[in-house]
């Protein structure tokens, strides 16, 4: 699993370059997020375009990443595939994270 990180219009976009956020990579995901978000300020948009599967361990790792944010940082999600979106809805985590249909609308959104 790797991330690519881009700054765009006052937000930082972290693109997960992996098809799965599951039990096998949950700890690595959390570590990568800690490194990637360290020192950032403002909106952080997690781009899940490439992710087609997430399990409860992966979901837990995203929740943990939100909890380890520093003051002034805000985590949002974008571009959830059908099966990923379903896990967020079933667990009601879609009420905890701002979720955007795609990166373009996420970046232009000033709801944050």
């Amino acid at each position: 699993m790797e991330f690519s990180i881009n700054a765009s219009d006052g937000a930082t976009i972290i693109t997960v370059q992996a098809a799965r956020i599951d039990a096998a990579v949950a700890i690595r995901f959390k570590d990568l997020m800690q490194n990637a978000t360290d020192g950032l300020d403002g909106r952080i948009i997690l781009d899940l375009t490439q992710v087609d599967f997430i399990d409860s361990s992966g979901l837990g790792a995203i929740v943990a990443s939100m909890k380890q944010l520093q003051p002034g940082q805000k985590l949002e999600l974008a571009s959830l595939n059908t099966n990923v979106d379903k896990v967020f809805r079933l667990t009601r985590m879609d009420t905890v994270f701002p979720i955007h249909n795609d990166i373009r609308t996420a970046v232009s959104s000033h709801a944050g």
Binding site: S56, L59, G60, A61, M66, L90, T91, R92, V96
Partner: peptide, 24 residues
């Protein structure tokens, strides 16, 4: 399903597994 807590620190990071199994 655990009730969603108001405080960020209390957000559950686990325990969703059996909920998903039972639900689906």
């Amino acid at each position: 399903p655990a009730p969603l807590p108001e405080a960020l620190e209390a957000m559950p990071e686990g325990g969703f597994g059996w909920f998903l199994i039972r639900d689906l």
